[in-house]
């Protein structure tokens, strides 16, 4: 039987931040698909997308890559536990 894991608090908080910003990027990009000329939405999407890149870089430097395209240091960190469905998310979305 597998058990659920907790991330260290700092890692979990950074992950939540990324999940929040990434969701905003998903939502604004979906909106822009049907409103490609909406300048306010474009501006929001650009800012969110930049923030997502920064946070993702920061996370991946500390804890390993989110995708197989990311870089690892001494060993191939993409395989590391826990995987998304194994995290207990005890901290909740703050």
């Amino acid at each position: 039987m597998n058990t659920l894991n907790n991330y260290p608090v700092a890692q979990e908080q950074l992950l939540y931040q990324i999940m929040k910003v990434e969701f905003a990027v998903i939502d604004t990009s979906l909106y822009l698909n049907t409103h490609p000329d909406d300048q306010v939405a474009l501006m929001n999407h650009r800012a969110l997308s930049q923030r997502l890149s920064l946070l993702t870089d920061q996370y991946e430097r500390l804890y390993g890559p989110f995708t197989p395209q990311g870089q690892s240091r001494y060993c191939w960190e993409f395989v590391n536990s826990p995987w998304p469905w194994e995290i207990s998310y005890q901290g909740g979305m703050k």
């Binding site: 969701f23 998903i26 890559p65 979305m93």
Partner: peptide
């Protein structure tokens, strides 16, 4: 497609 090792929204039970 490329897999991203995170959920779109947390799953808690």
């Amino acid at each position: 497609w490329v897999y991203e090792k995170k959920l779109e929204y947390p799953v808690r039970v």
